[in-house]
Amino acid sequence: MGKLSGKVAIVTASTDGIGLAIARRLAEDGAAVMVSSRKQQNVDSAVKELRNKNLSVSGIVCHVGIKEDRERMIQKTLKEYGGIDILVSNAAVNPVFGPILDTTESAWDKIMDINLKSSFFLCKEVVPHMEARGGGSVVFVSSIGGYNISEFMGPYGMSKTALLGLTKALVPQLAQKRIRVNCIAPGLVKTKFSEQLWKDSGAASSAYAQIIPMKRFAEPEDCAGIVSFLVSDDASYITGETVVIGGGVSARL
């Protein structure tokens, strides 16, 4: 039996990249996992892939910025698995790239709604169900960009910085409910979300890799084991912390 045997997890934006790697690892470690994405075909593909590995997963279309979608995801999880023990809030967007003063109000609102607001409210909506199980664990997926904010990704970086603060802010109330809340801050991970930064094998990509002490970009799986640890009993006395997964890149506010 795995260390997460008997646990039920929700992982948002989990049909590709970091989210899929986390969902796979939690399921490999024994959890039943609800995966989600905004597109049905992506949900179907991820569920098929994971079930082919004999993992206990289900899936649902969920736009985390829509309250009704979040509620449907929660209710489907309760119906299929009987409770919720783990939430990994991974969904994020970055619709703009350029100087921060060029950011439109609509782009600002979209970034903050998905990256920050939805993370808080999904956590709030899941907490009563975790409390009914005697406790649980929440992990927010931030970014090293929340520490070292890029000149051309200002709003995105700020939203990720806010997740570091949200993690701290939730600790006092959630601790009383036996719910731990932590955060991870990955560096540049080789996913579709970030492929413009790493896929080009030219000078710019090589130069960026050289500033990473480990001299490579992260793989999604580099994040998955840390999350599995944080939501397990091995981390039973860890809450309010952010783990930087940055290959040695300095990260301080």
Rank of each mutant, 00 (worst) to 15 (best):
A132M: 06
R70C: 12
I84Q: 08
S137K: 05
K48I: 09
K124M: 09
V47Y: 10
S106F: 14
G146R: 00
L55W: 01
K117W: 02
H63M: 11
A27V: 12
A27H: 13
N42R: 03
S150V: 00
D109T: 09
V138F: 05
C123D: 11
N148W: 01
D29R: 10
N54Y: 04
V126H: 00
L26Q: 10
T104I: 03
F121G: 01
P95T: 01
V139D: 01
S14K: 12
K39C: 07
K67Y: 15
N115G: 05
G30N: 09
G135E: 04
D29L: 05
L26V: 14
K48C: 12
A132G: 08
D44L: 09
I149L: 14
S119V: 13
H63W: 08
S142Q: 11
Q75T: 10
I114P: 10
V138G: 14
R25I: 07
V43G: 10
L55C: 06
V33S: 06
V33L: 01
V138W: 05
A132S: 13
P95M: 01
P128Y: 00
H129G: 04
V93P: 15
C123F: 10
Q41S: 13
I144K: 12
G82F: 02
K117T: 11
S58N: 11
F140Y: 14
I84Y: 00
M153T: 13
F97D: 15
G65T: 03
D109R: 11
E125H: 07
H63N: 15
G83M: 03
A132L: 06
R70H: 03
T77D: 09
Q40P: 08
G83F: 00
I60N: 11
K124S: 14
D85N: 15
G154V: 01
E80D: 11
L87I: 04
V47Q: 12
A31D: 04
A32M: 12
T103P: 05
I84E: 07
V57D: 07
L87Q: 02
G154I: 02
T103I: 10
V35I: 14
W108A: 09
A91C: 03
R24H: 05
M73P: 07
G98T: 02
S137I: 08
G59V: 06
L55G: 06
